[in-house]
Computed example of a mutant assay.
Amino acid sequence: MSDGTIGVVGAGIVGLATGREIALRRPGTRVVVFEKERRVAFHQTGHNSGVVHAGIYYTPGSLKADLTVRGVSLLREYCQEHRLPYQETGKLVMAVREDELGRMEGLYDRARNNHVPDLRKVSKDEIKEIEPHAGGIAALHSPRTAITDYPAIARRFAQDIEAAGGEVRLGFAVDGLTRVPGGIEVASGQDRVRVDRLVLCPGLHADTVAKLARDGAAPRIVPFRGEYMLLKPERAGLVRGLIYPVPDPRYPFLGVHFTPRVDGSVEVGPNAVLATAREGYKLSQVSVKDLARLAAYPGAWRMAAQHWRTGVKEYRGSLSRAAFMKDAGAYVPGVGVADVVRGGAGVRAQALDPDGTLVDDFRIHQVGRVTAVRNAPSPAATACMAIAEHITEAVFSPV
C-alpha cells in the first residue's frame, strides 16, 4: 500500500499524531516530519496544561465536538497501552453567581448532545463532597475528565514514526514549498526534500507556512500568551481535581481555573493576553515583524474593537498578582497572593477571520497535494489522534 513519501511540517502533538497515523495505516509509506526546533513538542505541546477534555464546551456537530469525543477514547487507550500518565481527576465547572446558572444549564445540554460520559449536575453541598475547599452555588461534574503528559505522548508518537521506518528531522525550518511533477519540494535554506504529499501542522506559524503552499490569507494567527501561577506545595492539597468557571460564550478562552498536574503540582490560570511575538513566552519578548503583520490585518482591529475591555482586564492580571488571583479566589475561597508563585506560560495559536471573529472550530484546508491545519487550538491535544485520522482521510483523497 505504499504511497511514496508523505511530509509533515511541525513536530507538535498534532503533527506527530498525524505522521504516526499515516505510517501505521499505510504500510510502506515513508513519513518525514520536519521541525525547526531541536526537539519535539517544543512550543504549544510543551506548554500545554495537560488536561484531557471530555467535550463539554463544543458546539454539537462541529469538528471540535466530534473529534474531541473520539479523541479521548483513543488517547486513553494509547496511554494505557504504553504506560503513559493518564489520571481521571474529574472536573467541576462551577457557577459562583446566580447569573451564571442559565449558562451552566445551556452547557449541560450541550455536553449531553456531545455524549460526555457520566456528566451530572451537583448542588452546593455536593460540591463540598467532591472539592471540600471549593466555593460555588452549583456545578457540573465530569468525573471522566483527565490529566496527562502531552510532551511524553508526543515523544512516544515520534518513536512510533521512526519504528515504522519514518524520520523526524529536527532543526529543519521550512522556508520554501515548490510544486514539482507529482509532488512538492520542501526547502530549508539549501536543503531540499521531495515528498509526494504534505501536511502542514506548524501551529503558531500556520498562516505563514500555508502561504508558502499558496493557501488563502485567512485566517491569520494571533498569538495569545497564557500565564500561570502555581500553588505553593503546602497548599496544593486544597485542590483534588480540575475546577473551572462557567465560560463566557462570547470568548474562546475558558477563564482562570485550577489544574492539578501529573507531577503533583497545581496550576492556577491561565489568563489570555495578546502576545508581542508568536513565540513570546515572556512579556519582554517582542517581535517587530509579528506586531507589524498583526497591525496590517483588518481582522485584528475589528477583534480589538469587540474585546478591548476583556483585554484590559487580562493585562491587569498579567501585571498584578493580586488582580490575577482575584477571580480565582471565588472558586477556592481563601486562596490568594500569599499561596502562589509565578509559574510558566504558553502561547496559543488562535486563528482570526478578517471580520474580527476568533475562529472556534478546527479548520483544515486542502490545497492540491497539501493539507493545511489552519486552526487547531485547545482541545487539539485531547483530540490529536482523532484529528490525525481526519487528516489522513484528507491526505489520501483524490487530488
Results as ranks from 00 to 15, higher is better:
Met1Val: 14
Ile6Met: 09
Val8Thr: 07
Ala11Gln: 04
Gly12Phe: 02
Ala17Leu: 04
Arg20Asp: 11
Glu21Arg: 13
Ala23Gln: 09
Arg25Trp: 00
Arg26Asp: 00
Pro27Ile: 12
Val32Gln: 00
Glu37Ser: 05
Arg38Tyr: 04
Arg39Lys: 10
Val40Pro: 04
His43Arg: 12
Thr45Leu: 13
Gly50Tyr: 13
Val52Cys: 05
Gly55Ile: 11
Ser62Leu: 15
Leu63Asn: 05
Thr68Met: 11
Arg70Gln: 14
Ser73Gln: 15
Ser73Glu: 13
Glu77Lys: 15
Glu81Leu: 15
Leu84Ser: 12
Leu84Thr: 12
Gln87Asp: 15
Gln87Pro: 10
Val96Gln: 13
Arg97Gly: 09
Arg97Trp: 15
Glu98Ser: 12
Glu100Tyr: 04
Leu101Met: 15
Gly102Leu: 14
Met104Ala: 10
Glu105Pro: 06
Tyr108Pro: 07
Tyr108Ile: 12
Tyr108Thr: 02
Arg110Ala: 06
Arg112Cys: 15
Asn113Gly: 14
Val116Pro: 10
Asp118Ser: 13
Ile130Cys: 11
Gly135Phe: 05
Ile137Thr: 10
His141Glu: 09
His141Leu: 14
Arg144Pro: 10
Thr145Gln: 12
Ile147Trp: 04
Ala152Met: 12
Ile161Val: 04
Gly165Arg: 01
Val168Arg: 00
Arg169Gln: 08
Gly171Asp: 10
Phe172Met: 08
Ala173Phe: 07
Val180Gly: 11
Val186Glu: 06
Gln190His: 09
Asp191Thr: 09
Val195Asp: 07
Arg197Ser: 08
Leu198Phe: 02
Pro202Arg: 05
Gly203Arg: 09
Ala210Phe: 00
Leu212Val: 10
Ala213Lys: 10
Gly216His: 11
Pro219Asn: 02
Arg220Leu: 01
Ile221His: 02
Arg225Ala: 07
Tyr228Lys: 05
Lys232Ala: 12
Pro233Ala: 12
Gly241Tyr: 04
Leu242Phe: 05
Pro245Glu: 05
Val246Arg: 06
Pro247Met: 06
Pro249Val: 03
Tyr251His: 01
Tyr251Trp: 13
Phe253Ile: 00
His257Trp: 05
Thr259Lys: 06
Val268Cys: 10
Val268Ile: 09
Pro270Gly: 02
Val273Lys: 02
Thr276Lys: 04
Arg278Gly: 14
Tyr281Ile: 03
Lys282Val: 02
Gln285Pro: 02
Asp290Tyr: 00
Ala295Leu: 15
Ala296Arg: 14
Tyr297Leu: 10
Pro298Ala: 12
Gly299Val: 11
Ala305Tyr: 05
Ala305His: 10
Gln306Lys: 15
Trp308Arg: 13
Gly311His: 00
Val312Cys: 04
Gly317Pro: 01
Ser318Thr: 07
Ser318Phe: 04
Leu319Tyr: 08
Arg321Asn: 03
Ala323Gln: 03
Phe324Ile: 07
Asp327His: 04
Asp327Pro: 01
Asp327Ala: 06
Ala328Gln: 13
Gly329Phe: 03
Gly334Lys: 02
Gly336Ile: 08
Gly336Trp: 00
Gly346Ala: 13
Gly346Thr: 08
Val347His: 00
Gln350Ala: 13
Gln350Pro: 13
Pro354Asn: 15
Asp361Pro: 04
Asp361Cys: 06
Ile364Met: 01
His365Ser: 11
Gly368Phe: 11
Arg369Glu: 00
Ala376Tyr: 01
Pro377Tyr: 00
Pro377Glu: 03
Met385Gln: 09
Met385Pro: 02
Ile387Arg: 00
Ala388Val: 07
Phe396Val: 03
Phe396Lys: 06
Ser397Lys: 14
Pro398Trp: 09
